[in-house]
Design a protein around this nucleic acid. Structure first.
Length: 137
DNA sequence: GCCAACGTTGGC
DNA sequence: GCCAACGTTGGC
């Protein structure tokens, strides 16, 4: 089981929308590192859903429903996509501010490389953030 | 709305 | 294959 973090601007696609849709195709990634991370995802892996720009917080947990395959919205054929489904909403969102205020979480990719939209999360980080969000890891 | 950081592109 | 220029992301 691997853990991940995926970012989305709420104005583009929010957690609330994913809950409503149940499942969505994670298209539009145009970054090799992010796309490469999606390639490593296995069905059943879990990912934090992070709201960037507005909210600035981890708001829930999604599960990888379909593994990496070509993104039909990418005309160049270089990038891929996965499908995710809503799994567990956080009781309380875990904000960037709180993450930065937690020494154990300062090595998160979210803090170190805030521009990467799909990133790995360690088991320890996963556990800590889940706890802060009020859900069981 | 600004600006720093970073990834990508393209000319050489 | 290098590197400058450019565009985009995202926190503040």
């Amino acid at each position: 089981m691997q853990y991940w973090l995926m970012k989305s601007e709420p104005s583009a696609y929010s957690w609330e929308q994913l809950v409503k849709d149940g499942k969505t195709g994670w298209t539009g990634v145009r970054n090799f590192q992010a796309s490469g991370n999606m390639k490593k995802m296995k069905k059943g892996d879990q990912a934090f859903f992070y709201h960037s720009n507005e909210g600035l917080a981890v708001v829930g947990i999604a599960e990888i429903a379909k593994e990496y395959h070509p993104d039909p919205t990418d005309k160049t054929g270089k990038f891929g996509m996965v499908e995710v489904k809503a799994l567990t909403p956080f009781k309380t969102p875990v904000t960037m501010k709180e993450i930065k205020a937690t020494p154990a979480l300062n090595d998160m990719v979210l803090v170190k490389n805030s521009r990467l939209s799909v990133q790995p999360v360690t088991a320890a980080e996963w556990k800590a953030v889940c706890k802060m969000g009020g859900v069981k890891a």
